[in-house]
Write a protein that binds this DNA or RNA. Structure first.
Length: 273
DNA sequence: AGACCCACCCGAACGC
DNA sequence: TGCGTTCGGGTGGGTC
């Protein structure tokens, strides 16, 4: 159910780093080239013969850097996932990329074919073009307040806007608003300074606790060398419509906002007018 | 410029 | 071996 959000991406980066750092790509079978971005600077096959050197993320983007200064950037979107094996493995119908590396076979799968990847020479330039906002950890409250205050959009849409702050997807947006007791439809210009102070703290705590729980669960994945970053985090709002609010017992409501399923407690989360 | 809409994609869930 | 329709998720490009 849950798609990879920032905490899952962070976990995936760390697990892949453990297995693949210093490993050379011996061969590649790019079975569904449609995953490569139109604007990719280089073809994916350019990575054959290169050695993984650095593993990081920017927002929900995975960044793999190689010797010779090339970088492979992957956005998992909803269902992208890596499977690692210690020996060559038969691809499934959803295996879109196979990499034979020094000590591992890497499969990349995506049932929806929604994810995207690119090969670039300048990581910073790539992300500047994407117009990404700051990371959600250590965000400047003054900056966030200004961004929210100048907008008449619903606060949930603002939180989802990656040019305001990166890494908040649909699931954690609902969780963050539940925790701060802000109604998702509240317009940005109605949000108070105190709300923003709470948001800054809660954004960080919700995402980091998910990373911690992912770190716990991912150990079972490392043993089997399957890395999809999915793990169960206890959710108070997302996917819980019709169930009692964990804070007050009121039945949780569901609306569609900006085309996204949105769950909240109409008693705990009041719209400010 | 800011806000909004829609395409992309296909398995799951649903309606009949 | 039931078949057709709807839904959803993040991002980017287009429009107003």
């Amino acid at each position: 159910m849950t798609m990879p959000e920032l905490p899952e991406v962070e976990t995936i980066v760390r697990v892949l780093e453990t297995s693949l750092k210093g490993s050379q790509i011996q061969s590649m079978d790019f079975r569904y080239p449609g995953l490569l971005e139109e604007g990719s600077e280089f073809p994916l096959e350019f990575l054959v013969g290169k050695t993984f050197t650095d593993f990081s993320r920017r927002g929900k983007y995975l960044v793999f850097e190689f010797d010779h200064a090339y970088a492979w950037i992957v956005h998992l979107r909803m269902e992208g996932k890596f499977h690692l094996y210690e020996a060559p493995q038969r691809p499934t119908k959803h295996t879109h990329l196979v990499l034979e590396c020094d000590d591992h076979t890497v499969h990349y799968l995506d049932t929806r074919k929604f994810s995207r990847m690119a090969v670039v020479s300048d990581v910073d330039a790539y992300f500047i073009a994407k117009k990404l906002g700051p990371e959600p950890f250590g965000i400047d409250p003054e900056y966030l307040y200004k961004q929210i205050k100048k907008s008449t959009r619903a606060i949930k849409n603002i939180l989802l806007d990656q040019s305001v702050v990166v890494g908040i997807g649909n699931i954690y947006a609902d969780e963050i608003l539940f925790e701060t007791q802000i109604h998702p439809l509240t317009k940005g210009n109605k949000i108070t300074k105190k709300d923003v102070a709470n948001l800054v703290v809660v954004i960080e705590s919700v995402l980091s606790s998910a990373i911690e729980q992912g770190g716990t669960t991912i150990r079972s994945y490392t043993s089997s060398l399957n890395v999809n970053g999915r793990f169960q985090v206890r959710l108070n709002a997302y996917g819980q419509a019709g169930k009692p609010c964990t804070r007050c017992g009121n039945t949780l409501s569901r609306i569609v906002l900006g085309g996204r399923s949105t769950v909240f407690c109409s008693k705990c989360q009041k719209v400010k007018r």
